[in-house]
Design a protein around this nucleic acid. Structure first.
Length: 918
RNA sequence: GCCCAGAUGGCGGAAUUGGUAGACGCGCUGGACUCAAAAUCCUGUGGCAGCAAUGCCGUGCGGGUUCGAUUCCCGCUCCGGGCACCA
C-alpha cells in the first residue's frame, strides 16, 4: 500500500465530522482544558499559509491535552461584523450578510482541509442575532451599572439612585465623567431628564461628549487602537480630532484592576509591557491654582508628577479643547485666541503629530502660584492634551523639555531648581539632584522632595495625591451599518433601554449602505427604525463589541436564557491557552479583560481574568523571487551576471520558480509582455534573486494552504509549519524545505508497508528501541509544554532514524500516539491498520520510564573550587560516594590538585562534578 | 525620544539555560540504482592551512567575570515590534 495522503486525509476528516469525535461536553470526572484561537474575520481573500500557523499550534496542544486525559474545549467561530464587508457592500450593493456568509463558507472549507479538532457544534458568528443578543445584553448591563470606587467594582445603577435619594451625592465615590454636588432634596426635585443626564455621567456604558477620532472618509469615529500614526487602521484615511457626543465604555474605571491583573497572567513580558504602557499609570498630585481673568477668579486644578518643581512654575498651559479656554480668555485677547483655535482645529491628527513646531497663544489671564504667591501667565498650546489629567498644566521649563521648548519660543522665564543643573541649552528632566530656589524644599534630594511637596500641599488644602491613567474610555459607537444595533431608544429625548426580554434588536434592512445625505448613519435609511414609536439609536457597535465575550459564549453557545449558563461557567471557567496575533494587544485583549471583569463584578462569570496563558504566534513572511530586466530591453539577466548591466528588479510569481531557478517557458506565458523575453543564463539556467517580505498578492509570493494540501497533504503542512521555527518568531515560508518533513512521513509509512506486505510484527523491542522511544516521550512532553514544537519534530526524525527498520508493534503503537497531535491523519490511519477500532484521539499519552533512557556513561568536567579542572568519564549510574572515591584515586595522579584535600563531592546528574577542597 | 524583543554556516534554525557550538531539515558535493529522468538510498558539508593525522580561527562589535561564556555583567552597532507631546 502506498502512502496516499489525499485518500487518507479525506477519509478521516469525514469520519471525525460524522462521528463528532471532537465534541466536548461537561464532564466533572475529568479536568477541563480550554484552548482558544483568536477567531478570524472572514475576508474575501481566503487563507494563506501564514494564517493557520496559530491554529495548528493550538490544535497540536489540544490533541496533546486530550491524550493526557483532559476534557478539552477547542471551539472556532467567526468575527463576522466589520468594515471590509461593508465597504464592499457600498461598492456593489450586495448585502454584507451575503458576502460574509460566502466568505465564511470558504474559510470553513480551507480550515477543514487541515484537519483541526474543533468542536464545530459550538461555532459562533458575531453577526448572528442569536449571538449578538448577548452583546446587546452586556451593553444594557453596562448601561445599567456604575463603578463604585470604594468597593472597587461595578454595581447596579439602582443602588446609586437609592444613595442619591437618601443622601444626595455626598459619600458616593464613583467613576464619573463630570461630578456635581447635590443634596437628597435636590436630587428628588430633579426632572426625569435632569436625573437621566446626571446618571449618564456615572453609567459604565454612557453617552458623553469627548474629543474623538473622526474619520471623514469612513464617515465614522474610531477608538484609539483603531488609529495608527494619525491614519485609520482600516483603509489608511486621515483622522481628525473632533468633539462629539458618542456612546462610550468606562474602561478607565477599570484601569487599576487591568494593570494589577497582568501580574497574575502567563503572558509574554513584551505583551504585558504593551498593556502597561497603554494603561499608563502615573503617580502624582492634583494642585489647585487660583486663576484671575479680569475681575473673575476661579480655582483651576492641574495634575503633575513633579510637585517638587512648583517653585519653578513660570507659566500655565491649557489644551485648546479645554473648557477653561473660554473662561480664561481675556476680551482683549479673544481675536488671537480664536484664530489660534481655528488653526489647530483644521489640522489632521497626522499633521499634529508630524509637526514639531511649537505653537501657542496667551489668554490674557494669570494664575497665582499657591506656594510662592507669584503671578504667572496662562497660555493655550497644542502640546497639552485635553484628554489627560485635567487638560491644564503648570509649566516648569527648567525641568521639562516640552515646557522648555515653549518657554524658549515665547521668551518666558526659566528658573532652575536643581543644584548644578545647566539649563542654558536644554532642560534638566532627570529626577535626581538637590533642590535649590525652592523654599522649604531646599537641600532635599528630588526623590525626597516630591513626597515632601505633596505632603505640604495636602496639609494646606491646596491639593492631594492622585494616580492618573493614560487609558481612555472606549468610544463605542460607529456610524456604520454592519454592526450590532444599540438596544436603546429615545423616549422624549431620554436614552432608554429596550427591555431585556425583547432582545435582540435586529439589524434592519436598508436600501443602501452609506450615510444619508444629511450625514446620518446608514440605519437612518431603515423604514420605521423605532421602538414603540420612539426613535432607536442609529449608530452601531464597533468591531470589538462582538469579540469581547465570545470565549464565554463558546462555553454554552445555544443557551437562550443566559450568555453562559452557571453550570457551564463553573466548569469551563476561563481560557487556559489563548493563541493569536500580537496586533490585538491594546484592542481586543484590553476590551475583553474589561468586559470580563465587568461581568465578574455582577456575578455572571466566576473568573476575573479571561485568558490565563497567551501565546503570540509570529508572522509567516513570504519569500519573493526577482528577475532582472536590462533597462530598455526585454532581456533578463541571471542573478550572478546582473552586476555587468543596468537592470530593473521585477517580482516574479513564485509558482514559476523552483529552487530559485526560473521556468523560462512558464515565464514567457505568464504575461503577454514577456512572451518574447530573452535571457542571459549562467550554466544554462536562470537564477532568480530573492528576498523575505510580507506575504501578499502584490509581491507574487502568496502560498495557498490548499495547494500545499494537494501536493503534500495536510499532515505535511502541519509538520512543516511547526518545523519552520519557534512559534512566536516571525519567519519566512520557503516551500522548497517542505520535502524534508514529507520524506519523514513516507519513511514512517515504510515501516508499516512494503508494497502490499504489512510488516508489523509482535516481536519484543530491544533495549535500544525502548531507549529511543522513551527519549522521544520525554522530549515531546517537555517540548509541547514549553511550546517548542519545532524541536519535537526534529526529535521525531532522529527517533525514526535510530529505529532503522524496526516494524514492531510495541514500538510503533506508542510512536503513532506521540505523532498524532502533529500529523493526525496518518497516525489515525496507521493506528486503525494496527487493529484499533476507536479513534487515536481516545488513546493515552505513553508513560515515560526513565529507566530505559539511562546513559551508560558520560563525561563530567571536574572543577576544583574554581581553579583547575579536568574531564572524567564515569558511569552515569555511579553514586556520589563512588565518584568521590574515583576522584580521590585521580588525585594521586593529578598534578593540578596540589596539597589540598577533598572534603566533599557533589554530583549533579548528567552535568558536573563539583569538588570542594580544603 | 522612551519601552520591549532579537542578532549563531549558503538558508530555516538546535544547544539539556555556564560544560564537546552548528542538532534536525533545506540547499550544495560525490556516489549507488536506472538506457535516462523522477523517486529512493549512501557519503561529505562553519572558515582557513594541509594528501593526511592535525592545527588555528569562529555564535553582530569592544571590554569584563569564570578553570570554562552563544548563555552572565558593562559599553556600542544593526534589524524587528510597540508607544509617542500623557505633564
Amino acid at each position: 500500500m502506498e502512502y496516499d495522503f489525499k485518500a487518507i486525509e479525506k477519509k478521516w476528516q469525514e469520519r471525525w465530522a460524522r462521528e463528532k469525535t471532537f465534541r466536548s461536553e461537561i464532564d466533572s470526572s475529568k479536568p477541563k482544558y480550554y484552548v482558544l484561537d483568536m477567531f478570524p474575520y472572514p475576508s474575501g481573500a481566503g487563507l494563506h499559509v501564514g494564517h493557520p500557523l496559530g491554529y495548528i499550534a493550538s490544535d497540536i496542544f489540544s490533541r496533546y491535552k486530550r491524550l493526557k486525559g483532559f476534557n478539552v474545549l477547542h471551539p472556532m467561530g467567526y468575527d463576522a461584523f466589520g468594515l471590509p464587508a461593508e465597504q464592499y457592500a457600498i461598492q456593489t450593493g450586495q448585502h454584507p450578510g451575503v458576502t460574509t456568509a460566502r466568505n465564511v463558507a470558504r474559510y470553513r472549507e480551507q480550515l477543514d482541509r487541515i484537519g483541526f479538532s474543533y468542536d464545530w457544534d459550538r461555532e459562533v458568528r458575531t453577526c448572528d442575532p442569536a449571538y449578538y443578543k448577548w452583546t446587546q445584553w452586556a451593553f444594557l448591563k453596562m448601561f445599567g451599572s456604575w463603578y463604585d470606587n470604594s468597593l472597587g467594582k461595578a454595581r447596579p445603577i439602582e443602588d446609586l439612585v437609592a444613595a442619591f435619594s437618601a443622601h444626595g451625592s455626598a459619600g458616593v465615590d464613583a467613576a464619573c465623567s463630570n461630578a456635581r454636588a447635590f443634596s437628597a432634596e435636590e436630587w428628588n426635585a430633579f426632572t426625569e431628564k435632569e436625573k437621566s443626564d446626571i446618571l449618564m455621567d456615572y453609567r459604565i456604558a454612557y453617552q458623553g461628549e469627548s474629543t474623538v477620532n473622526w474619520c471623514p472618509a469612513l464617515g465614522t469615529v474610531l477608538a484609539n487602537d483603531e488609529v495608527k500614526d494619525g491614519y485609520s487602521e482600516r483603509g489608511g484615511f486621515p483622522v481628525f480630532q473632533k468633539k462629539m457626543t458618542q456612546w462610550q465604555l468606562r474602561v478607565s474605571a477599570y484601569a487599576g484592576r487591568l494593570l494589577e491583573g497582568l501580574d497574575r497572567l502567563d503572558w509574554t513580558d513584551s505583551l504585558k509591557e504593551m498593556q502597561r504602557n497603554w494603561i499608563g499609570r502615573s503617580e502624582g498630585a492634583e494642585m489647585v491654582f487660583k486663576v484671575v481673568c479680569g475681575s473673575s477668579e476661579y480655582d483651576m486644578t492641574i495634575f503633575t508628577t513633579r510637585a517638587d518643581t512648583v517653585f519653578g512654575v513660570t507659566f500655565m498651559v491649557l489644551a485648546p479643547e479645554s473648557e477653561w479656554v473660554e473662561k480664561l480668555t481675556d476680551p482683549s485677547r479673544k481675536a488671537e485666541v480664536d484664530a489660534y483655535l481655528e488653526q489647530v482645529k483644521k489640522k489632521t491628527e497626522r499633521e499634529r503629530i508630524a509637526s514639531k513646531a511649537v505653537t501657542g497663544v496667551f489668554t490674557g489671564s494669570y494664575a497665582i502660584n499657591p506656594l510662592t504667591g507669584g503671578k504667572v501667565p496662562v497660555w493655550i498650546a497644542e502640546y497639552v492634551l485635553a484628554g489627560y489629567g485635567t487638560g491644564a498644566i503648570m509649566a516648569v521649563p527648567a525641568h521639562d523639555s516640552r515646557d522648555y521648548a515653549f518657554a524658549r519660543k515665547f521668551d518666558l522665564p526659566i528658573i532652575p531648581l536643581i543644584e548644578g543643573a545647566d539649563v542654558s541649552s536644554s532642560s534638566f528632566d532627570a529626577k535626581e539632584g538637590r533642590m535649590v530656589n525652592s523654599g522649604f524644599l531646599n537641600g532635599l534630594d528630588v526623590k525626597e522632595a516630591i513626597p515632601a511637596a505633596i505632603d505640604y500641599v495636602e496639609s494646606h488644602g491646596i491639593g492631594r495625591r492622585k494616580v492618573n491613567y493614560r487609558i481612555r474610555d472606549a468610544i463605542f459607537s460607529r456610524q456604520r451599518y454592519w454592526g450590532e444595533p444599540f438596544p436603546i431608544y429615545y423616549k422624549d429625548g431620554i436614552p432608554t433601554p429596550v427591555p431585556m426580554e425583547e432582545l435582540p434588536v435586529t439589524l434592519p434592512e436598508v436600501d443602501r449602505y452609506e450615510p444619508t445625505e444629511q450625514g446620518e448613519p446608514p440605519l437612518a435609511r431603515a423604514e420605521d427604525w423605532t421602538y414603540r414609536g420612539w426613535p432607536l439609536e442609529k449608530s452601531t457597535m464597533p468591531g470589538f463589541a462582538g469579540s469581547s465575550a465570545y470565549y464565554l459564549r463558546y462555553m454554552d453557545p445555544r443557551n437562550d436564557s443566559a450568555l453562559v449558563g452557571e453550570e457551564a461557567d463553573r466548569y469551563w471557567r476561563n481560557v487556559d491557552l489563548y493563541i493569536g496575533g500580537t496586533e490585538h494587544a491594546t484592542g481586543h485583549l484590553i476590551y475583553s479583560r474589561f468586559w470580563n471583569k465587568f461581568l465578574y463584578d455582577l456575578g455572571y462569570v466566576c473568573e476575573d481574568e479571561p485568558f490565563m496563558k497567551l501565546i503570540n504566534q509570529g508572522m509567516i513572511q513570504g519569500r519573493s523571487n526577482f528577475v532582472y530586466r536590462i533597462v530598455g530591453t526585454n532581456t533578463f539577466v541571471s542573478l550572478g551576471l546582473k552586476d555587468g548591466y543596468e537592470t530593473t528588479e521585477i517580482h516574479v510569481d513564485i509558482s514559476l520558480v523552483r529552487n530559485d531557478r526560473l521556468d523560462l517557458d512558464a515565464f514567457r506565458k505568464w504575461r503577454p509582455e514577456y512572451g518574447t523575453a530573452e535571457f542571459i543564463l549562467e550554466d544554462g539556467e536562470y537564477v532568480c534573486g530573492w528576498a523575505v517580505e510580507k506575504m501578499s498578492k502584490s509581491m507574487y509570493n502568496v502560498v495557498n494552504p490548499d495547494m500545499v494540501c494537494d501536493t503534500y497533504g495536510a499532515d505535511t503542512l502541519r509538520l512543516y509549519e511547526m518545523f519552520l521555527g519557534p512559534l512566536e518568531q516571525s519567519k519566512p515560508w520557503d516551500t522548497k524545505g517542505i520535502d524534508g518533513v514529507h520524506r519523514f512521513l513516507r519513511k514512517l509509512w515504510r515501516l508499516f508497508w512494503d508494497r502490499d506486505t504489512f510488516l508489523v510484527t509482535d516481536e519484543a523491542p530491544t533495549p535500544a528501541e525502548l531507549k529511543t522511544l522513551h527519549k522521544l516521550i520525554a522530549k515531546e512532553q517537555s517540548d509541547i509544554e514549553s511550546f517548542s514544537f519545532n524541536t519535537t519534530i526534529s526529535a521525531f526524525m532522529i527517533a525514526l532514524g535510530e529505529l532503522g527498520n524496526c516494524s514492531k508493534r510495541a514500538v510503533l503503537e506508542p510512536f503513532l500516539i506521540l505523532l498524532s497531535p502533529f500529523a493526525p491523519h496518518v497516525a489515525e490511519e496507521l493506528w486503525h491498520q494496527l487493529g484499533h477500532s476507536e479513534s487515536i484521539t481516545y488513546a493515552s499519552f505513553p508513560e515515560y520510564n526513565p529507566a530505559y533512557t539511562v546513559e551508560d556513561s558520560c563525561t563530567y568536567p571536574v572543577s576544583f573550587n574554581g581553579k583547575t579542572r579536568f574531564m572524567v568519564d564515569l558511569p552515569r549510574s555511579m553514586s556520589p560516594s563512588d565518584v568521590d572515591a574515583h576522584i580521590r584515586s585521580l588525585e594521586q595522579t593529578s598534578r593540578y590538585v596540589g596539597n589540598q584535600r577533598i572534603v566533599k563531592v557533589i554530583v549533579v546528574p548528567g552535568r558536573i562534578v563539583n569538588v570542594v577542597l580544603k
